[in-house]
């Protein structure tokens, strides 16, 4: 049994669709339109208000209205999506996010149904009747393009790969679906602590200010102040993380996070390839460094040479003045 749909798995944060979630819906809408398929958002748990909000941006919401899905459990979420496929038929594709939860759920689900899986996709297009995706490999030194030959094709999409879906003229429908929900896998959450960036996920941040060796120690406060002026998130290069000054979840680079914000400001970061690989898909990159020959300038759109300790507060001030 099959259905002519592309599903976007909606991830909700504090009752809101995340920016990356809106981009997934846009991806599903664009690719479905080209082939005359239907784009659907799949909502796991949550409430009617969230389902209605989703229906504002996509023609149909498949709402698995079951409170057992409210708390994240990789096996339960994968099992519920598997159940949805049994109940409704296999969709042409399932799009999810390149984030910590979907990176567990989607490959697990792909294994359960023998499907093709590709992670961290930055482009998706049709190659005949198959989906072709482009994704970075070897830490971003090259990109590969793969055709996914199974139905469904399962893809996690990088934040920033698509624009966020715009509101529809008329809201779509919400279809409540009940599927078999498997028992918990046995992973129980003992404690949830918001991390150093106050619970904000760096991967989702639209504006990021990152500090490197040039802002170690107390100087890093200048980075925080600038991020504050931008309503942005803070990040760090490997130098500061390895020195124990910043937590690992703030590290941008090959052995840390790969992020694609609208604006990335690298402060006192030399620009080693390891670092650049983690941020070179950002929309606009600004580099501030005292060394005019620092490699970071080759990876930036805009550059300023000078004392980071003076430039950062002045920039924060100028941004505040603009508000």
């Amino acid at each position: 049994m099959a259905c002519n749909e592309i599903w976007a798995v909606a991830r909700i944060r504090d009752g809101q669709i995340t920016g990356a979630g809106l981009q997934l819906i846009e991806a599903a809408r664009e690719l479905a339109r080209e082939k005359g398929l239907d784009a659907r958002a799949v909502l796991l748990g949550c409430d009617r208000a969230t389902a209605d909000e989703l229906a504002g941006v996509v023609n149909g919401v498949l709402w698995l209205n079951d409170e057992r899905l409210n708390e994240y459990d990789a096996a339960v979420h994968a099992g519920a999506l598997f159940g949805l496929m049994e109940a409704r038929g296999k969709p042409v594709a399932i799009f999810a996010g390149t984030n910590d939860t979907d990176s567990e759920v989607v490959p697990r689900l792909a294994a359960m149904c023998g499907a093709a899986f590709a992670s961290s996709c930055v482009k998706i297009r049709w190659e005949g009747d198959d989906l072709a995706i482009r994704r970075p490999v070897f830490g971003g030194k090259v990109y590969e393009e793969l055709a996914l030959l199974s139905r469904p094709a399962m893809v996690t999409v990088r934040p920033g790969a698509f624009d966020g879906a715009q509101k529809l003229a008329a809201p779509g429908s919400v279809e409540e679906i009940s599927v078999e929900i498997p028992a918990s896998s046995g992973v129980t959450v003992v404690e949830r602590a918001s991390s150093a960036q106050g619970g904000q996920d760096l991967s989702d941040a639209r504006r990021v200010v990152a500090g490197g060796r040039g802002v170690s120690g107390e100087s890093y406060q200048k980075v925080e102040a600038l991020a504050d002026a931008l309503d942005g998130s803070i990040a760090a290069s490997r130098a500061l993380v390895d020195a124990g000054e910043r937590p690992h979840e703030q590290q941008v680079g090959k052995s840390g996070k790969t992020i694609s914000p609208d604006l990335y400001i690298a402060c006192g970061i030399s620009g080693a390839i390891h670092h650049v690989l983690g941020m070179n898909t950002s929309k606009v990159v600004v580099a501030v460094n005292s060394d005019p020959d620092a490699p970071i300038f080759a990876a930036a759109d805009l550059g300023m040479v000078g004392d980071v300790m003076e430039i950062l507060p002045a920039l924060a001030e100028a941004l505040r003045a603009r508000k």
């Binding site: 023998g114 499907a115 093709a116 899986f117 590709a118 190659e127 198959d130 072709a132 482009r134 970075p136 971003g140 030194k141 090259v142 990109y143 590969e144 393009e145 793969l146 055709a147 996914l148 030959l149 199974s150 070179n280 898909t281 990159v285 600004v286 580099a287 300038f297 080759a298 990876a299 930036a300 759109d301 805009l302 550059g303 300023m304 040479v305 430039i311 002045a314 920039l315 001030e317 100028a318 941004l319 603009r322």
Partner: peptide, 27 residues
């Protein structure tokens, strides 16, 4: 048989960096 490689591509490159003199220009 589930995945077929269509090709390899170079990473996207950025145009030449534009240097700015002061923060107001940057903003």
């Amino acid at each position: 048989g589930r995945l077929k490689r269509l090709g390899y591509y170079s990473p996207p490159t950025r145009p030449q960096v534009q240097m700015v003199g002061d923060v107001n220009e940057l903003v």
